[in-house]
Amino acid sequence: MNGIQFENVSKYYKEGDNTFIALNDVSISVNPGEFVAVIGPSGSGKSTFLSIAGALLQPSEGNVTINGVHLSDLKQKDLSKLRLEQIGFILQTSNLVPYLTVLDQLLVVKKMKGSITNEDKLFAKELLEEVGLGDKLKKFPDQLSGGERQRTAVARAFMNDPNIILADEPTASLDTQRAFEIVELISKGVKSRNKAAIMVTHDERLLKYCDKVYQMNDGNLKLLEEPVAVR
Rank of each mutant, 00 (worst) to 15 (best):
R205N: 12
R156M: 08
K139W: 11
G219P: 06
T152S: 12
Y99C: 00
D161R: 14
V213T: 12
Y214I: 08
V228E: 13
V109Y: 01
L224M: 15
F89K: 05
G189K: 06
T117R: 05
D203L: 09
P141E: 06
Q215M: 14
D203S: 10
L224V: 13
Q215H: 09
F180K: 07
V108P: 01
E184Q: 11
H202D: 08
I198V: 15
G146E: 02
V131P: 01
V200G: 03
T171F: 00
V97N: 05
D203W: 06
Y99Q: 13
K222T: 15
A124H: 13
G219N: 13
V108T: 15
V200Q: 06
G189I: 04
V131N: 08
M199V: 13
L174W: 06
P162N: 08
I116A: 07
D203F: 07
K195S: 09
E184F: 04
S187E: 13
G114N: 14
L127A: 01
D142F: 14
A153K: 08
N95T: 02
P170C: 03
R151L: 02
Q215I: 04
K111D: 05
C210H: 04
G88W: 04
N95P: 00
L144P: 07
K136R: 15
T201M: 10
A196H: 06
V108I: 15
V190T: 08
Y99W: 06
V108Y: 13
L166Q: 01
V190Y: 06
K110M: 14
A157I: 09
L224S: 05
L128V: 06
D218V: 00
K125W: 08
L174H: 01
E169N: 04
